[in-house]
Design a protein around this nucleic acid. Structure first.
Lengths: 143, 143
DNA sequence: CTATATAATTATCATATGATAACTATAAAA
DNA sequence: TTTTATAGTTATCATATGATAATTATATAG
């Protein structure tokens, strides 16, 4: 097994995933949300409610900058703060109704893009794809 | 086959790939090269020599901004221009010796990161991984 | 030959992003 | 209780990035 060749395949694969990600998000209307803000919204959508610190950690941002951008997202009415009753230093963030709808729309758009790619495949093929996702996730792209 | 479930799996997978990419590039010393400039270097490294227009296309940048950033990369001694003898409007870009060394170092770093993840796997497992990469690349993450 | 399309450059501007210092409030440890 | 650690805010600055208009040079179509 030539590791050099496998590496090139990985590199090509990662590039393809990035391009596909770009293609998927293209066309989803994101008026008034910057790339960094979108990344934050995506994280909040999946893990809500979350503290500012965990947003900062997971998006590789500093706490001050995270605070600033969340403030902007709240001003746009996309996020809400909830006080943490256990630890009053913490601020729990979650999507607002409007933010939830925005992300639902985006996820729906991505789903339809995916549908366009795998919609016609047989159930056996889909099973194979699912297994491939699991394998790579566990063996290579694990955190 | 529940498409909704498969979508969530895809979403999770894409997130993992992005995080792994981030982890891979972390630690590679990129003094004085911005993220956008790095993206350009990566494209040039793989496809050189390339025209400014193709760099602009593939990195989703405007031509003026591409021109500006390439200029900076040349000032840093990482890229070179070669005139296209066929069409004198075109500027072919390639890595300089220094740029080549930089990218070799980064690719080497990524290779060792990958090695750390799959280095101990059996040849059969590696074959499976290779097939999974091919499958997903062809069926889902194709351009 | 003239008009038009392509490739790239330069200049300029607004905004997004990243970094840091100074600060407040609360919790936990000594 | 005093000290120290944690969570977050605010303000400020420098730089990176994205958008656009105006310009030059060359190629190609009519």
């Amino acid at each position: 097994m030539d590791k050099q060749v496998l590496f090139l395949k990985f590199f090509d694969f990662i590039t393809s995933v990035h391009q596909t990600t770009h293609a998927f998000s293209k066309g989803a209307k994101l008026e008034d949300v910057t790339p960094v803000q979108y990344k934050m919204l995506e994280y909040v959508a999946v893990s809500q409610p979350v503290t500012l610190s965990s947003i900062a950690d997971c998006t590789h941002m500093s706490l001050p900058n995270t605070s600033r951008e969340i403030k902007k997202l709240m001003q746009k009415g996309l996020c809400e703060k909830v006080a943490d009753t256990d630890d009053r230093r913490k601020q729990l963030i979650r999507l607002s109704e409007k933010g939830q709808q925005l992300m639902n729309g985006i996820f729906g758009h991505m789903l339809s893009q995916l549908e366009g790619r795998i919609g016609t495949l047989s159930d056996e093929k889909l099973k194979e794809i699912e297994q491939a996702l699991d394998l790579l996730h566990d063996q290579v792209f694990r955190a």
